[in-house]
Structure formats: structure tokens, C-alpha cells
Amino acid sequence: MSEKKKFDYRHIVCLLVTLGVVACGVFVFPNAFSRLVESVKDFGLSVAYFFCETFGIEYGFTPTVNELPTLQIIPSLGGGATTTLPETWDGFKSNWGTYWQLWATSDNFIGYLLYVSDLLFTLCKVIIIALPIILFFYVYLSRYLKNENNDYDKDSRPLKAFKWFTAHVYTPVKTWVIGMYCFIRERKGYWVTWLCLWLFYFNAFTIVIEFFAFYFYFMGSFDISSIYRQVYKLCLDLWAIFDFIPVWAWVVVGLIVMDHIRKKIAYARLRHFELRNRGFINARPIVYMVCGTMGKKKTTAITDMALSQEVMLRDKAFEKLLENDLKFSCFPWIILENELKRAMEHHEIYSLATVKVWVRKKAIRWNKAPNREKLFDYDYERYGLTYDNKLKVTTVWEVIETYAQLYFIYVIQSSLLIANYSVRVDNVLADLGNFPMWNNDFFKSDSRLVDSYSRHAHILDFDSLRLGRKIVEENRNSDSFEFGVVVITEVGKERGNSIELQDKKKNADCANQKNDLFNSWLKMVRHSATVDNFPFVRVITDEQRPESWGADARDLCEIVHIRNSGDMSLAMPFFSFAELLYDWLFGRFTRLYYKYRFVRSDNTLPMYLLKAFVAKINHYYTGIYNRFGFCTLSVQIESGTQDGQYDENKYFLMSKKIYSKRFSTDCFSDFFTEKALRSSIGINDLLEYATEKATIDELQLQNSYFINDLLKGL
């Protein structure tokens, strides 16, 4: 049975709105059409003038682009532009001098002060009206604070009435408005029609056509003196929008534009900080260690560095792909890329080594019987098989091998991070089936959607970093590491130093820090990861003290000491007034709210409204700081040999990048949770000292080496 499609009444609403917009055009902007016709005429004559002048053709017409509009822009509103701006350039020059004379007169300044005071007076009137309401609200709330109760989560009668009102009036209206908005957004025909009509009324099309009309006229005449006339005409056309929209609406528009600009500035600053961070990371060697006492944000810093490093490795692969692409500019790289993708899907290619083997097999096959199909359809007879960079001659198969390895590094979608704690990465690979592109932006991701495309760092199997003895001898991961960013937090606890490893023997049966050849791996790590002379590897570690990691490994590193972690700052300008207001409001609300919580447990209307209002402001404020907040770390860089020479530097931690579910600051907390669960007692069950002075029995309960030694002497 076919179901009859129900007619949506919202179409009627949209049609009525359309009729209203058309009526507005007829009654308020009756001359918009004639201006459009004029502009088309100006354009036609200017084009004809341009061609006649260019090709020396005789003509008997005059271009009309410099003539003023014959009708007023908005007849009903008068068209004040004509009185403000002079019609001619000479008139403008004369007014320019008069303007500065007037600007410098005290009468004009006093007049301005009076105008400002008038505005302030209007503002005061608003405050005077608002003040009794606020006062009433305060008295009303204070009344509640006088009465104590324990009515847990019970709504007062006014609150019940308010909730009923919102459920039966506000919510349906809001739902309808949102539904209407979605309805219009989905139907492009309506909103595009309205947009075009308003653009037409505000002479937008006329302005564009007039611009091209003058462009052609100017190319034919080079009449510089006519430019002012065009500015004047532009002002007349724009006057339609300036005159029609009221001042308060312009204030709103101004605030929206200012908000947009300040956010744009904030994003630019955050990206600038990110580039500075990348410069800092690039200046470090392949292995480096970040040190700092507890709470100095060292794990946060290495996570941030690892995230930037991952992006930089991909960027480097991308850059080198282009370099190799240009060596054989007519090579059909897409055919090679598609074959690589297929081989990766079939797990024929899963590492740089397998890429090399795959390419070399193809090269051998081609060498046996050369033809285009075996060389990815490359027309080698026409374009050649070698490339000379004036240092050496490279064959096409060598470049293919390099390109394939770089493409493998670039295109793998899992994270390039291999860490001993979890790190979330959210770079997105956009692929239309051609060359894929990475979106590496850290600052514009939608926090509600990140889980849908997030990946996490690979689990670091330390056996894969050991060239000697391994903890699991038949470990399938042991030879897997080739390239990527290795991140090791608390490296000293894993590797130890010479004092801690005194009792470990190199010839022990099981793996230990002395016989696993981890340090040898560290010294040779770039060999497995070098493609096209660039090492696609970094080892980033952290520890509280540099000495906690043995000198043999530490000497390879640079040590980044975090000396100071600065306060949270905001990259977005023009937020100081909002911050002042927020601090003032939030401080007062917190005091009032906890006084209320102390006295009462029920829900009342004034507190419900106040809390909702403050929560909204708090969410906005927190959202701004989370998006545009950053903190500056003061760091000192020292050689791993600890020669005592420090280079001062700065590193920026941007909230949106590093605190957006990136990692857990208590990454080993599950161990301590498990340990605590084994205990049957908690802090409340521990014995307390009876007085200010501990007794001998109480001291014995400490199980302290020191106390035990003292007690032995008794």
C-alpha cells in the first residue's frame, strides 16, 4: 500500500515569509531594480567602449558608468549619503580640510562629550530599571537563606510552576523554532531565495556589475579622476543597507564580527606557538629526555612533543614524496600508489623492509623482460630511466623504492606513536581514492566527534627495542620496530642507573638491563628508520632526575629541564572585560551558593535561575579557555653529558591540543587501584595519635628504620 506523503505546513510559513520579503522589496526598495538595470547598461556600454578603444573602432556613444543614479536608493528613507559625502573630488578635498578644522575645535569635542553623556544616560536608565529587579531578586533569595530545612531535592511551589511553564510553553516554542531552522536549512530553495532577494535590495549585484563596468571603462580610458565618482556611487549603493538596518542591529553585527576576528587571531596565535614548538623539537637530537620535579608537566610536555613529532614525520614524508615525484615528473605515481595500497591490504607490505622486497621483486621481473606494464605503465622509452641530480645518477627503480617507503610512512592510518602509556591521536586522513591528504589540525576539532575517528598510540613492547636478550625469547614483536616516535615515560625506572644495576650480571640467564643491548639499539636506531637520508624516528623520554637513567644512554641525549610552568593564559584578545565580569560574578555566586547549600537542601526558583545563569556563563568561559588557553613552560636545554651549560627556551602547551582526552596524567594508576583493593582498610580506619606527642607504642607502629634503630639502643 503506498503511503500518501503528508504536506508539511511549514512550507506555508516559508511562502508567507517569501511574500513578506517580496513586499518589503516593493515598498521599501522600489528603486533597487532600476539600479540593477542601470548597472547592466553601464556594464554593456563600458565593454563596448573598451573594445572600440582597444581596436580603434569608431563609436557614437558615451559610457555612462560615471553618471550618478537617476533615482534615490531608498526613497522612503531619504538617502542621507548625498549630504555627507561630496559628489566630486574637489568637493571632497575642500571638505577634508574642513573636517580636520572641525575635528580640532573644542566645541565639537564638547558636543561629542555631550553625545557620549547622552548615551551613558540611556545606559543609566537601563541600569535604574534593572537595579530594583536585581534588588528584589536578592531580597527574595536572602529570605530563603533565613529558613533552614532538610527537604532533600524537593522543589518549591514557584519552581514547580516555573518548570510547568517551561515544559508547556518555552520548550514547545524552542522545539518548533529549532525544527523550523532545520527545515529551512535542509531546503536550499527557500534560504537561497531570501538571501538573493536581500542581496538584490541592498544593491550587492549592482555593486558587482558596476565594479566590472568601471574595470572595463578604466582599461579603455585610464581616467584616474573618475575613481572618486565610483567611490561616491559605491557609498550611495551601500547606503541602502546602512540606512535600513537600525543602529542596535549594527552594534550586534559589530560584536559578532569582533568575536569572529578575535577568534581568528587566537587560532593564528595558537598555530604560531605550534610552529615554534616544532622548531624547538627539530633542534633536539633523535633521543632526548625531559626532566622536572613532580607536577612540572613533564609527561604532558613529552606527549605534546610526540604529537607534534608524529605530524612532522608525516609532513616530512609528504615533502620528500614531492621531491621524488619531480625526479620522474611523467611517472604515473597513482598506479604505483594503488598497487602499494592493494599490497598493504593483503598484508604483503607491512614494514619498510617488506616495501623494499616488494619493489625489488618487481624490478627483477622487469629486468628479465622490460615492458611498460611491468613498470607501472611508465613510458620509459619516451621519458627515460635515469635521473641526474648533478651528484649522482639514480635509476627509476631506486626512486620507486624510496617513493614507496615514503608513501608507506605517509599513508598508514594507525598512529606513529609507540609508547609505554596511552596517547590519543586524532589526525584524519581524507581520501577520495586519489592522493590522500592528512588533516593535522589540533585546534579546530569538535570535542563531540573526536571519539569517532580517534586512534591510540601502539603498545610499546620493550623486547622490540632490545638487540640482545629478550624477556620473551620467542616474542613475535621483537623485530617489529623500524620507525616512528618512541615515547617512554619514567625511563629511569625502566632502565635504571649504574648504582641500581650493580647486582645485575651481563651473563645472567634471563634478560636484564645489562645484557639486552637496549643502549646499542638506541645508538643505532636511525639505521632502521632512514628513508631518503632522513631518519623517521624519535625517542622521547621523561624522568624526574637525569641521573636516574644510566650515563651510557643519557650521554646520547639532550636533557630538557622544565624549570617553571607558567599560569594559563589566553591566546584570544579582547576578553579582559568578560574576565573581570566573570571573576566578580563567580566569586559572589560561589559564596552565596555554598551558604544556601549549608542552610537548605530544597530547590527554589531564585537559586534555580541564578545557578542556570551562572552555569551558562561558566560553560562559555571554560569553553573559551579550553579552546584558546595555553601555558608557557620555561625550559633549559643541557647536553646529556651534563656539562652544566644551559640554553634557555620556551615551550607552549595549548589546552585544546594536549588536554583534549590525550593521555591520562595518572597513567599507572590502575596498578595502585589494584593494590588498594587488596587492602581491607582505608584512611578512616588508620590509627590516630592520641595527643600532640607520640608515645613509644605509637612510634613503633611506624615500622621505621630510624625509629627501630633508636629503639634498639634502649
Binding site: 572641525l102 565639537n108 561629542y112 557620549v116 579582559s576 572585560f577 573581570l580
Partner: peptide, 30 residues
Amino acid sequence: MKTIKRILCTLLVVAIVFVIGYFIYTAVQL
């Protein structure tokens, strides 16, 4: 310190708006 900085920034914005306003006011008076 932070509050003083915020007050100064707010005053700076107000001053900028005041000065721009004077230029516009003079143009309208002309």
C-alpha cells in the same frame, strides 16, 4: 596583578572606541 592587567586592557578598548567614535561623530557633524 592579573586584575590590574585586565582593567587596563578594558580601559584601552574603551579608549579606542572613544577615539574612533570621535572621528565618526565629526564626520557626521560635517
